[in-house]
Structures are given as C-alpha cells and as structure tokens.
C-alpha cells in the first residue's frame, strides 16, 4: 500500500480524492432523500406571518394562496388586515425593502372587529355560514344564527350575503384581560442626533422628584 503510494504519488492522490468525493456524494445524496422537506417551506413561513383573517382582500381566496402568490413574485403589500407590521415582517423574511400598504386593497384598521348578528332579525337562511371562512358562525336552516366571537376573524365576508342585513361588524370591546398599558404619550422616537436637553442641569425642578 505504502509502496504503491510512494511509487505513484499522482495516481494515488487522484484515487484518494476520487474516493472521497464519491463517499461525500453518496452521503449528501442519502441526506437529500432522507431529510427531504415536505411542501414548500417558504410558503409555510410566509403564511405564518399573514394574519389569517382569510378575507380575500388581497385578491386571493385566503391567506395561504396569497402566500403562494408572494412566492411566485407578487407584491407583499396587499394585505390590509395585517397592515404595516405584516409587510415589515414579510420584507424581513424575504430580505426586500418594505413598501407601504397598497390601499387599493383596503385600509388598515387598528381596531379589531367581529361580526355581530342581530339575532331576532335573522331568518336562518345559512348564507352567512357558507360565507364564513373559519366556520365561526353557528346555526341551522330556519334557526337563529350566532357568531362565535373567539373564532371570528373579522373578515367581513358574511355581511354581504345576508339577505336581511342583520350582520354588523362591531369593534371588539376591550375587557380587563385584553387591556394593556399604552406606551407613554411622550413616546419619542429614538433620536441620536438630539443635542438639546442632554445634560442633567437642563432640567427644571431637578430636586422635585427626588423629594417625592
């Protein structure tokens, strides 16, 4: 073996390299088959960022199809329920500059809404059930219908089909659980170039708050 290497240095080097590449190729090939990722991971990741309101305002029948469309090169600013936050997150994921929301598809509303059926006006036609993308409406033919607030995404799709116009989109009320502290009103965006007010003696009543 050693004799062979010493006598044919070039050949043995080539053989060694060839053997190595064959071995690694086999390992890589095996790994590609064994650890194959099912589905399109990018679509899944984009879908995870979309708000899942399933409202169709983006021009696609649901969030997943829009995620697919984004992968196929569509603009990322077509989802009004997600607003700028979703666009930023998408831009982050896809590593593209974040555009502003394309308002042709609708306006962003910070107030979350849910559908509310005025139950005594409902004629039980089940049209709204067929429209609801998340099965958030409960009812049966000729029976009063009602919305499961927790499952309603506020997509607005059930309002149009109702023949007696008894569905309204009402703002989701804040209760003790959903309430949160607001950022202080004095919220100043981080500014690094502010020179004014930078030393402690600029403040009036310095002693006041210490006395508190």
């Amino acid at each position: 073996m050693i004799d062979f290497i010493l006598q044919n240095p070039i050949l043995s080097a080539l053989l060694a390299l060839g053997g190595l590449s064959a071995a690694f190729g086999a390992i890589l090939g095996f790994a590609a088959v064994k650890y194959k990722v099912e589905g399109d991971p990018l679509v899944e990741r984009i879908d995870a960022l979309l708000p899942q309101t399933q409202c169709g305002q983006c021009g696609h029948p649901g969030c997943k199809p829009y995620a697919q469309a984004i992968v196929n090169g569509e603009d990322i600013n077509k989802c009004p329920p997600g607003g700028q936050a979703t666009i930023n997150a998408l831009a982050d994921l896809l590593d593209v500059p974040a555009p502003t929301l394309d308002t042709e598809h609708g306006e962003y509303s910070a107030v979350k809404k849910v559908a509310f059926i005025r139950e005594d006006e409902c004629i039980g036609c089940t049209k709204c059930i067929q429209a609801c993308p998340t099965d958030a409406i409960l009812g049966a033919a000729k029976q009063m219908h009602t919305v499961i607030i927790d499952e309603c995404t506020g997509c607005d799709l059930c309002v149009e089909p109702c023949p007696v116009d008894c569905i309204d989109m009402v703002p989701l009320p804040t209760n003790i659980d959903s309430w949160k502290w607001a950022l202080p009103a004095t919220n100043q965006k981080p500014v690094f170039h502010v020179v004014a007010n930078l030393i402690a003696t600029d403040r009036r009543n310095t002693s006041d708050d210490k006395a508190a």
Binding site: Q57, E104, G106, Q130, C155, P161
Partner: peptide
Amino acid sequence: TIEDPMAAAIARAKARK
C-alpha cells in the same frame, strides 16, 4: 355558492382597484 363569498370579496377588491 362555496366560492361565492370569497369571489365576491375578490371582486370587491378588484372593483376598488
């Protein structure tokens, strides 16, 4: 009928456009 609402929404969006 199943695709109606979604189609309607899409149509609305297009109409807005």
